[in-house]
Design a protein around this nucleic acid. Structure first.
Lengths: 189, 189
DNA sequence: TGTTTATTTCAGAAATTTCTGAAATAAGAG
DNA sequence: CTCTTATTTCAGAAATTTCTGAAATAAACA
């Protein structure tokens, strides 16, 4: 039985869950595990949240699919227990990696496909637009991969640099973009 | 009546829409407008996609709410016409800003609230966990705001830097992280 | 091995979201 | 002001997603 703060937190995650493409149940289960000092078994979760056993089972499966929850064997108890990752930065990495996989990669594949199968010289406007989109997504995912390669400690340092990074881009950016010969002359509205 | 490529693109966006928290209709309307060389009116959209007039009206309203679609008055036609933003980077900025507003900010507010109203000295574990989460979200949104302040041209240059950025973080990062005294000793599994 | 306990699956019930057509509202044109 | 055309709203229909309980499966123990 969760405390007041826990309850609030869990309910909030339930509501937000729907904005995040996971459902209420799954959000609440995650929130409960996130705040729990020790791993919980499915029955604990049923008791705490009042969901059916099968619903909890499904929810845990989905969370494991996301890589956000892990099974932990607890000594002296036959039942499976579950816990969230400890390191919050690892959570973010997992979350972003999964969302990329589900929300970005399929689109990138599709755009490349469409460009390949395009008929000769026709549809210039649409193909141009698709090409722009693809290039941008490639740039973004490239950046992501670069960041993802970094150790957490350095990554966090970078994230906390504040205006330093902007200044760095202001000086170095110019050179690099010249070097690469990016045609960044388009603009609008 | 869209071409084969257009149709494929539109259908893909419809399907992906659901993973993006917008629905099929809205995704398809956006895709259609995105590929269209000139602004379209609601009836054009109905005709092209076969949705009811009211559905299109709702969809356009939602897209305008997201800031992804703009009304354009077309001379000699009384009807409202609609178009997507031209600059794909502006689209990404808009998208991220909106998602932050809808998916991150409410949670940040909630977490701060919970920390404020916490009873004296109790609930140390849960509060610690909530604090970690809040700090991390603050770091991330701070970084986002920093990036968002940059002009597109520089931002793109930065995004395309590849390993240069990682090297920069490797040299400068150390100093910053020492200065801040971040206790990054937790890790797992 | 058989018995007990834990977990998963799955068909349909319940809840939610999306979509439509009809009615209401707004906005030009004469 | 009236007529016409464009747009929005909204109650309920249709479709989709979520959730449950019962049955099936698996896994531990003796």
């Amino acid at each position: 039985m969760p405390s007041h703060i826990q309850r609030e937190f869990i309910l909030h995650f339930g509501e937000m869950g729907s904005r995040w493409g996971i459902n209420r149940t799954v959000g609440q289960i995650y929130a409960l595990l996130f705040l729990s000092e020790r791993p919980l078994c499915a029955d604990d979760i049923c008791a705490a949240l009042g969901f059916s056993r099968s619903n909890v089972s499904m929810g845990l499966k989905e969370l494991q699919g996301w890589g956000l929850v892990r099974r932990r064997d607890l000594e002296g108890d036959r039942r499976d227990h579950f816990a969230t990752l400890d390191d919050q930065w690892q959570i973010v990495r997992t979350l972003i990696a999964e969302r990329k996989k589900r929300e970005i990669d399929p689109t990138l594949t599709k755009l490349r496909e469409l460009e390949m199968q395009a008929p000769e010289g026709a549809e210039t406007y649409a193909l141009g637009r698709i090409g722009q989109l693809r290039e941008m997504i490639e740039t973004l995912t490239g950046f992501y991969e670069e960041m993802n390669r970094m150790e957490t400690e350095r990554l966090v340092a970078l994230l906390k640099m504040g205006s330093t990074l902007r200044k760095f881009a202001a000086t170095t950016g110019r050179v690099v973009s010249l070097g690469k010969g990016s045609k960044s002359k388009e603009e609008t509205s």
